[in-house]
Amino acid sequence: MSQPPPLTPVNVVRLQREGGVAHLPGLARPRCIHCARYSEAQRDELWHLLSSAESGAGGEEVPGADRRRFCLSVEDANGNSLWLLTVAEDAMPQELIEWWRRADTSAENGNAP
């Protein structure tokens, strides 16, 4: 697996929660983190969290009907995907889940609100 690219102000990190028995539109809607809104230190923290999520991506998923996963991507200014990763929810760093909870849900197509 490759590491995510360094995060610059032009990047957008897209996080989407998938799976589970019940479909909850509010939780399934892609959430965007517009890197321009964060300091270099915050972008560095986010990069480290994305890198650490990668270690949980290769693991075997626990069987069961109600399992969720996160699809993570880093996009450039044109919306092109530079990096993709799918991680089981159980393997996601808790801090990255917090970023997901606070992320912008109104920018579904990569457009800033």
Rank of each mutant, 00 (worst) to 15 (best):
E98W: 03
G64S: 11
A53P: 04
V74R: 06
C71F: 07
G59T: 10
L24S: 04
S55T: 06
E108I: 14
A103D: 08
A36Q: 10
V21Y: 12
V87Q: 03
E89G: 00
N78E: 15
E95H: 07
P63H: 12
P4A: 06
N111P: 00
E54S: 13
P93S: 04
S55Q: 10
G59E: 07
R31G: 07
D66Q: 09
L85A: 02
P5R: 15
S73N: 01
G64F: 04
E75L: 15
A91S: 11
A57K: 03
L15I: 11
F70C: 02
V87E: 02
A65C: 08
A112F: 14
N80M: 05
G20Q: 07
L7P: 11
A36L: 10
D104C: 15
E40Y: 02
S51I: 00
G56V: 00
V74Q: 00
T8D: 14
V87K: 00
Q94I: 11
E45S: 09
A41T: 11
L27A: 15
G56R: 00
D90G: 11
R43V: 03
L15Q: 09
W83L: 02
W100H: 13
V12I: 14
Q42A: 13
L27T: 15
A91Y: 08
N109C: 13
I33E: 04
D104R: 14
